[in-house]
Every structure is written in C-alpha cells, then in structure tokens.
Design a protein around this nucleic acid. Structure first.
Lengths: 207, 207
DNA sequence: CAAAATATACCTGAATTCAGGTAGAAAAAA
DNA sequence: TTTTTTCTACCTGAATTCAGGTATATTTTG
C-alpha cells in the first residue's frame, strides 16, 4: 500500500486530492496538513511514499520544505502542486529533489497521471509545466539575480509604497543609501522603474 | 433533492467540494464549471438551488457573476468561496444577492455548516468572515471609490510599470491626460504615490 | 432636457525618482 | 589572510511623478 500525504493551507484542495486518491485501491492518504511544520513532525515518526505539497504555505516556503523532506526521508517522492508558473521556481524545487510539478489548474486526470508516473520512478509534470520547462525564458536569466538581505528589506518597504525618505527614516539610513539599494536591485533585474521591480520580484518570489 | 453547482477554475477545488457534497444524501452536484459563462449557459436550461462560486474567475468577476445568476434565477442561492478578506468585496457580493461567503481556508466542517445554514434561508459565513464583517475597516470607506472605464484602463497600464509617456502613446492621449487620470485615482483612494494606488486597488479588486 | 459625471488637455512648480558615476568600511568567502 | 561581496554614502543632472489648479466637449443620468 502506497502511503501519501498532502500539504496545502486550503482544506478544500486537500479534500479534493484525498477524494481523488481514494479512487486508487493501492494508495491511501495517511496524513493531510495545512502547514509545513505539521508535515515535518509527522515525517519524524512515520514513513511516506509520496508528499503532495503547495508552494505557498503559511509557515514555510515549499521549496525549503521540499529540501527538508528529502533530508529527513530521501525515499519520499515530492510532488509540488502550485499556482506559480515561473520557470525559476519550478527549477528550484526540482533541484531540491522534487520529482513532479503540477499547476493547480491542472485537470484531475493530469494529477492522476502525474502520481502514477512518479510512482514509476520518473519525473512528472502537468502539460503547461512541460511547456514552461521546455523554453527557458528571458526572465529566467534575470531570475538568478538574488537580492541581499538588506536589499530585500528595502524592497519590501518599497513594495508597500513608502518613499525613499521614509524608508531611510525607518532603517536609520541615508536616503542616498536607500536609493543605491533600489537602483542596484533595478539593475539586477534590468528594469527601469520601481513598479516593474516590484512586479518582477514578486513574480519570482524574491520578496 | 437539492441541486448544487460549483464554479472554480481549480479542478482540485471542484473535486473537493463535489466529494464533500456527495456525503449529503439529500443533495447532488448537477454541474461544475471553470468559468462564469459556462455556469450562465447551464442556468439558462437548468434549475439550481445553490451555486458555490469563486470570486477570481478567468472570464468574469465573481461579483458580477453573482448579480447575473440572481437576475437569471432569483431563487438560486449563491455562496461565494474566496480567498479575499477585503470587507468591501464581501459587502459587494452580498449586495449583489449572495447569501454566504466563506474563505478557502475554511474547514470542511465550516463549509458544510454554511451550506446547511443557507438552505435554512439564512445568511452564512465562515468564522473569519464574521469578524471581518463585524468591524468596518478604514479601507472600506475608500473602497466605495469606483473607477471609470478609462481610469481602470490606465490603472492596468500603470500596474505594469509603464510610464506616463508610454501609456499616453499606447492610448493616443496626451501625457497630461494620463497624468490627470492617475491623479484622480490617487485622490479617490487617498494615497500618495502610484505604488500605493496599485496596492490598494489590487487589494480591492478594482483592477 | 438639465444636471452631473466623465474624458480630455493644459499650466506651474515642488518633490521624487532615475541614471551615471565614485568610494570607503565591514562582512563574508576563498 | 587576502579577495570578494555587501553595505554604506555622496555628487550631478535629467526625467518623471506629485500636487495645486483650470477648462471644455462629450456622455450619462435624473
């Protein structure tokens, strides 16, 4: 019997997956969780064959969670179920050991297929995801640009609509310093104003 | 037998709700749709007692859709299932005839209770929603500011990071006109820069 | 139809952001 | 312990946005 767990902060999604899995007679859902930490503590005392996990969780980034799962239990297969269509995100979680990635708007059929494929030891993706993986986007090259801690801190404040002056005030910095950080970030992502910076950064989960 | 339909662009959510409903022996799901238009055409030839609908749909705003449903079939009860916690959105859809609003992170129990309550002819909300309704927020006052068609058009372009000049180019307007629209919107929402404008407008589904 | 709302366009001046630099101290990595 | 990266700060000037107006034709509404 194949043991499977689901992590998603939307109970309805969990319900959907559980009811789907129950149609398989060689599979059972042995746990469903709304946070990453719940999954981790479950994994410490239980074995799992497959984990389906959302990328946006309240407590922990799904990419990080995937790495933790694989560290704790390398034999457990991880399938990401997410809304994110950014190639860089998909590649990140795959590099962290996930063996599948399907979008939430995938059909129930696709989800079924993916689980079966993963059980065969192969990587599995929903249709849309395959297209995304197939062609590296321009954004992706930029995506490698990581922000420093300080930059992220300032980006967050920019994203809240705060002015350079008030950010400088808040962080006890010179406005010129704040300016410099903002400009460096814009350069890293190759954009020409703050709104584009926020958009691109948000898209890529850099914020 | 109570006939129920679900509208959500995530098949997994639909699956979850369907499997929940199937536990009731006096209720059946007679339709599940991923777009608002599919529901509307279904409603033209079929009767429904309850519609569960998501607010973010690919083709039509759930608030609008709710109004259309009530126009077409006043006896059909509409329950919104959404991620949005903005008081103004909740109130809007209620004004359009919805008789329930639950958040997607509500428990399966809550969803069950809501459906039963609505069937009794009462309004039903999940716990969190009740709290939101209970205390009118500051944002709500601002929320009443509606944007005109032209304003929305320009707001969308601003949100993409385009400059006044390029927006003017695109819409064959004077940059001064674009400026005026932007400023009028900022005044309506009482914010002091474009980023705040975008943030607040997005939050309130005005965009 | 009259009144109100909307879309358009302009003026002026202040404030802010954008873009090109340079540069030193501190922290992290090799 | 060097080397590199990060964080900090400054200068200058151009471009853009912000904020106070006014104004007119058109469309919508009462």
């Amino acid at each position: 019997m194949i043991r499977l767990a689901v992590v998603d902060d939307h109970p309805i999604v969990i319900q959907g997956i559980v009811s789907l899995i129950n149609n398989f007679d060689n599979m059972m859902v042995t746990g469903s969780f709304q946070t990453g930490n719940e999954l981790i503590s479950f994994l410490e005392n239980n074995k799992l064959d497959i984990v389906l996990l959302d990328i946006m969780l309240p407590d922990i980034n799904g990419i990080e969670l995937c790495a933790q799962v694989k560290r704790l239990s390398p034999s457990t297969a991880v399938i990401a179920i997410s809304n994110h269509t950014e190639r860089s995100i998909i590649m990140q979680i795959l590099q962290n050991g996930a063996c599948g990635y399907i979008l939430k708007n995938a059909s129930v059929e696709e989800l079924k297929n993916c689980i079966e494929t993963v059980l065969n030891g192969e990587l599995a993706f929903s249709k849309e995801v395959i297209e995304i993986i197939a062609k590296p986007s321009v954004n992706d090259l930029k995506g490698r640009a990581k922000f420093t801690k300080r930059e992220k801190e300032i980006l967050l404040l920019i994203a809240q609509g705060k002015t350079t002056a008030s950010i400088a005030d808040e962080l006890f910095l010179s406005p010129l310093t704040v300016e410099t950080h903002r400009r460096n970030m814009m350069q890293k992502l190759d954009v020409k104003n703050s709104i584009e910076l926020i958009n691109l950064a948000t898209e890529q989960l850099l914020i």
